[in-house]
């Protein structure tokens, strides 16, 4: 465990020593703020209409449903662009600069190295999410949202981000070139994001499969405050499988030399 933490600590230091951590946290904060303001204005207008009784507005406006849930779903867009930046260099840079030789000849298992790198990325991502607590905090200060959907929403986001991170880690382990790693990661993320777009044109069976594969589809219930083991299993198995592939990829690299 201390080995995992040592690697995670090193990864985190690496993020903060380079502009990556600041770009990822800064830009996601700006984008989140922008989404927040937009949804806030929307919520504001809808509430006004509801109070005035115009246009048959909903009887009671729920801040969780109208504001927080869509906001969380919007975060997946931010992740799509920022998380490839976090993972693209994890393995490829070590391979390019030769530092991978240090890690692979130290008394560490491949599992410890992969977990350390994953954990480092996860902590950076958690820091990125932590910034958004400020906005949510305002809602709690001036309104009365329910806290449970917020908590499950954050859990969902954390899990979805972890999926992206583990997948990015795997892609990074395939190449020495971090730009290539970043691009491929982005493309694969995007595919998992839009994979169910054609589901309405296909047979029910295909539709079911595509919806199940879609990484954002599983987030919906989390943002509504529903904790379904189906989604938990999807995310956890996605993460475990990606990390497993990463370990295999690092190992096979050894054999190929």
């Amino acid at each position: 465990m201390s080995n995992v933490l040592a690697i995670a600590h090193k990864e985190l230091k690496g993020y903060f020593a380079s502009p990556i951590a600041y770009i990822v946290i800064g830009f996601s904060a700006i984008l989140f703020g922008w989404f927040f303001i937009n949804l806030l204005y929307y919520f504001d207008r809808m509430s006004m209409q509801a109070v005035a009784g115009f246009g048959g507005g909903p009887q009671s406006m729920n801040v969780n449903e109208v504001l927080i849930a869509p906001l969380f779903l919007n975060v997946s867009v931010i992740l799509l662009f920022t998380l490839p930046l976090v993972t693209m260099r994890t393995y490829s840079e070590e391979k390019r600069s030769g530092t991978i030789e240090l890690l692979l000849t130290a008394p560490l298992t491949d599992f410890q190295i992969v977990m350390g790198k994953f954990l480092g990325g996860l902590v950076l991502y958690a820091a990125m999410l932590a910034v958004t607590l400020v906005h949510i905090g305002f809602l709690f200060a001036f309104g009365t949202p329910e806290w449970q959907p917020v908590a499950t929403g954050y859990l969902g986001l954390l899990l979805m981000g972890a999926c992206f991170l583990s997948l990015g880690l795997f892609v990074s382990s395939l190449t020495k070139n971090q730009i290539v790693a970043g691009m491929i990661t982005f493309a694969v993320f995007l595919l998992f994001w839009v994979i169910n777009w054609i589901s309405s044109f296909t047979s029910p069976t295909t539709q079911g499969i595509l919806n199940y594969l879609s990484i954002t589809e599983h987030l919906n219930d989390f943002t509504r405050g529903v904790l379904d083991t189906k989604h938990l299993i999807y995310y956890v198995s996605f993460i475990a499988f990606s990390l497993f592939l990463t370990i295999r990829s690092v190992d096979s690299e050894r054999w190929r030399g």
Partner: peptide, 10 residues
């Protein structure tokens, strides 16, 4: 190793 395995940012 042949190339010293250093992390430039450390």
């Amino acid at each position: 190793p042949e190339t010293p395995p250093l992390y430039p940012e450390m």
